[in-house]
Design a protein around this nucleic acid. Structure first.
Lengths: 145, 145
DNA sequence: CCAAATTATCTCGACGTCAAGATAATAATG
DNA sequence: CATTATTATCTTGACGTCGAGATAATTTGG
């Protein structure tokens, strides 16, 4: 088979399986992967602009608005308009959000630990390296996070 | 940052970017990635059961029915009931489907060649190896293709 | 043989996401 | 300044997929 096809098939297959597995666990905990990534960032930042959160979760402007509004409805984050540039809205995590994320994070980490338990820290690092190497070598342009 | 989180973030990011890029090209050519994988398989097989095609494209039973019906509507594949086990339906590519896929395949291959041009065959093979290694080491069960 | 379990496909409602366009605010240019 | 371009967010309609349940066909075990 053509090596390019094979390359894409393997990447697709593995990332599909892995992401599916993560997503399912987060779903059982009541969150989407996007929400997890957003809360993960907000938990260690005072505030962040809506668009930046979209870049972090790799979702488009329309979707990040939708996701943020969902999190606001759940009372996990709040929105504040930047007075110096009224186009920008700052998002920050609420006390409730911080509390919920603490539980979510703990459970999900335990789960990831199980899924990845057969890899050593060394092996994980090497794979991260390899994936970053691939990313930098591809002829693809994407937003840097 | 936690290495497991980092591991997932990198895999998510790169596979997201890569799959997004492939998907966009196929979309411009009028196909989804699932359709591409299904036609790719049917093009070199006389016939295949619906469920098996779902496994190949990594989509669930409800979705494969939907996708196959779309391809039938487009006249690219046809469905035939297995007389020995009437639960099973065999799908095979039509002459039109073969012709259309030929063009699709050619265009998409040229595109992939561009995207992956900065990697040598050797490097691609090594990455495929690495991804297969990961797949085999993860504590995840999934349908084998 | 019949009842129960399994298997293959299909239906339906829902979800997460995207793309394109709308709106509002700001920055840049003549 | 006034106009134009850019940027940030939001709205809308659509798409691809999933999960749960329905149906039909087959297999299995008493």
């Amino acid at each position: 088979m053509d090596i390019n096809i094979e390359f894409m098939r393997e990447l697709h297959k593995t990332s599909h399986i892995v992401l599916d597995t993560i997503t399912k666990n987060l779903f059982e905990l009541g969150f989407t992967f996007s929400e997890f990534l957003i809360l993960l960032h907000l938990e260690k930042t005072e505030k962040e602009a809506v668009q930046k959160l979209g870049d972090i979760a790799l979702i488009t402007s329309g979707t990040i608005t939708f996701v943020i509004n969902k999190l606001i409805k759940k009372g996990l984050v709040k929105k504040l308009q930047n007075p110096d540039d009224k186009r920008i809205f700052w998002i920050s995590i609420t006390d409730l959000g911080r509390k919920k994320f603490e539980d979510l994070f703990k459970s999900h980490m335990e789960y990831l630990e199980t899924v990845l338990s057969s890899l050593s820290t060394q092996e994980k690092s090497e794979f991260i390296e390899k994936i970053r190497w691939l990313n930098s070598r591809l002829n693809i342009t994407a937003n840097e996070v």
